[in-house]
């Protein structure tokens, strides 16, 4: 028996409704956003709110165009992206190496796990001042701040994922004559690639959080610096513009990893 697709009226009707509903949701989202902007602009124009404190969409757009033209904004964006990217890469590399090491030497993993749990539940921004004292202000500190937010959780999650590999599958490798290294390369690692991608998805956001904290405290450039600087000199346009750009960056990075995730999941099924 074949499943009938789009053949009966009922089915076609259902499909049409489902599609319509999806479209409706999409346009409602756009409408909410546009409505919000319009309300904000109107409120600012008619002086219902003080645009000195609350800025306005037009002022922000103007500032955006201006700062893009004189390249200053692009440089700040670039620096934040670069710092986040580096933090993220370092988190990933360092976590994979550590979690792998723990898997090969489980006693070491068991021994260090409680320390990692404590470090992971610590509010990581508390570490930032310490890092500044040790490393001074500058990109090194900011990247370390970026790493500090995600890394402990990343190691823990990855290690726990490695640990939960089906022992029967490891036995399979043994029955085929494989050693511990091959258990890792043939089973543990490839099996956990989907987990790895979802951990990465969380950590790209955390790296951004850490980098912004770092830039708040120790930056001379970058979006975090713009936010702090803007708030200190009461250039709220600049602050809100930076926040909007951060939203866009976060969305973009998340979207990219989501796409990668879908591709990998498809391969892994």
């Amino acid at each position: 028996m074949k499943t009938q697709i789009n053949s009966s009226d009922g089915q076609r009707n259902y499909m049409r409704k489902a599609k319509l509903h999806k479209l409706l949701i999409f346009w409602c989202r756009i409408l909410v956003f546009a409505g919000f902007l319009a309300l904000w602009q109107t409120a600012a124009s008619f002086k219902w709110i003080d645009s000195f404190y609350f800025s306005s969409p037009l002022a922000i757009a103007k500032l955006f165009v201006h700062d893009i033209r004189d390249m200053s904004l692009l440089r700040h964006i670039g620096i934040t992206l670069l710092e986040s990217g580096l933090s993220f890469l370092l988190i990933i590399v360092f976590s994979v190496i550590t979690a792998t090491f723990f898997w090969f030497y489980p006693s070491l993993g068991k021994m260090l796990e409680p320390f990692l749990i404590v470090l992971n539940s610590l509010p990581k921004s508390a570490l930032a001042p310490l890092i500044i004292v040790w490393l001074g202000t500058g990109p090194r500190t900011i990247i370390l701040c970026g790493m500090s937010v995600g890394i402990f959780g990343c190691i823990l999650n990855l290690y726990q994922a490695f640990e939960q590999t089906d022992p029967e599958r490891l036995k399979l490798i043994e029955t085929l004559g494989g050693n511990k290294l091959q258990k890792f390369t043939k089973i543990v690692f490839p099996q956990n690639i989907p987990t790895f991608i979802s951990i990465a998805k969380v950590n790209i956001g955390l790296a951004l959080v850490g980098v912004i904290i770092g830039e708040f405290l120790a930056g001379r450039q970058g979006l975090g610096y713009l936010i702090i600087y803007g708030s200190q000199v009461f250039k709220l346009d600049m602050v809100i513009l930076s926040i909007v750009i951060l939203c866009a960056i976060a969305m973009l990075l998340y979207g990219m990893l989501n796409l990668l995730n879908k591709k990998i999941i498809a391969l892994w099924q």
Partner: peptide
């Protein structure tokens, strides 16, 4: 020696 286990454990990737 060849060993066959209860589950096939074919790797999905």
């Amino acid at each position: 020696i060849g060993y066959m286990l209860q589950h096939d454990h074919l790797l999905e990737w």
